[in-house]
């Protein structure tokens, strides 16, 4: 790089050139400095802002609360980052504000420096992810009749409290409707079984038993089986089969049927 370009760049007031708001306040939250991007966001000239309290100017949701990052950074003498909301070109947007204490030469804290980053994009992504998770959770739990008296309920995805309740209701209603003797609960599609999920499974099996139906659990993955044993979950009173195939054959046994090869 030629020295002239370097000199020219170093000659620019870089604080002003940073394309995101940067602000410095003293210990009483009087604004000492705010850069051009900050003024732009707020739609105000520096002359209007100078000397005002920061909370009167930027008006975020954390302003004047214990969670104010500048206050925390100064009180705790450390860098603090927090999510917040503030006005940008007249619109309220989600932001992440990071603040660190400013110190004099003796090391006494005399103010705080903050920089503000627009995080609308990541917040939008997170919300989308949440909605998608919600959609997956709300996928119905179909009960399939695979033979007279034999029901199959394949579980796919994450079993949470709400969905577990739905599973119990669906299965019990179908057992009564179909006068089922056996129900197969297939867990091939469940990535993780913790004690809360195990409790729901045990409850389902016990309730089915009261209606006169046996429940066969199938499709535990090796990882899940190992984890359940380590957790100490007792499934001793429950019939389990490694695969859905053996589960179906056991279920047919229960009703006195079996699958045989056809020889013509």
């Amino acid at each position: 790089m030629s020295t002239t370009v370097k000199d020219e760049i170093m000659g620019i007031d870089l604080k002003q050139a940073i394309p995101t708001p940067v602000m410095a306040v003293d210990k009483d939250f009087n604004i000492v400095f705010i850069n051009a991007a900050g003024c732009d966001w707020l739609g105000k000239e520096w002359e209007e802002i100078e000397g005002k309290k920061c909370y009167d100017v930027i008006e975020t949701t954390l302003c004047n609360t214990k969670k104010c990052v500048a206050r925390k950074a100064m009180d705790e003498n450390t860098k603090i980052t927090a999510r917040n909301e503030m006005k940008c070109y007249g619109k309220t947007i989600p932001v992440e504000i990071t603040s660190s204490p400013l110190k004099d030469k003796k090391g006494n804290i005399i103010g705080g420096l903050e920089y503000i980053v627009d995080i609308s994009h990541s917040v939008k992504m997170e919300n989308e992810l949440r909605t998608q998770t919600q959609t997956i959770l709300e996928l119905s739990t179909p009960v399939i009749k695979i033979w007279d008296g034999v029901l199959l309920l394949p579980l796919v995805g994450i079993v949470d409290t709400m969905r577990a309740q739905q599973i119990i209701e669906n299965l019990l209603n179908s057992i009564v409707e179909n006068e089922a003797e056996v129900a197969i609960l297939d867990l091939s599609g469940v990535p993780l079984v913790d004690t809360a999920v195990a409790k729901h499974i045990i409850k389902t099996v016990n309730a089915a038993k009261m209606l006169g139906a046996e429940t066969i659990l199938t499709g535990f993955s090796p990882d899940v089986a190992q984890t359940l044993v380590t957790l100490g979950v007792d499934l001793n009173n429950i019939i389990t089969c490694g695969s859905l195939k053996t589960g179906i054959s056991k279920a047919l046994n229960f009703i006195g049927k079996k699958v045989v090869s056809y020889e013509g």
């Binding site: 990535p191 993780l192 079984v193 913790d194 004690t195 809360a196 993955s221 090796p222 990882d223 899940v224 190992q226 984890t227 380590t230 957790l231």
Partner: peptide, 17 residues
Amino acid sequence: GSADQTRMATAISELAR
């Protein structure tokens, strides 16, 4: 490996609940 992943994910699940 996947067994370790499942162990930790389950443990987190327990504590987070």
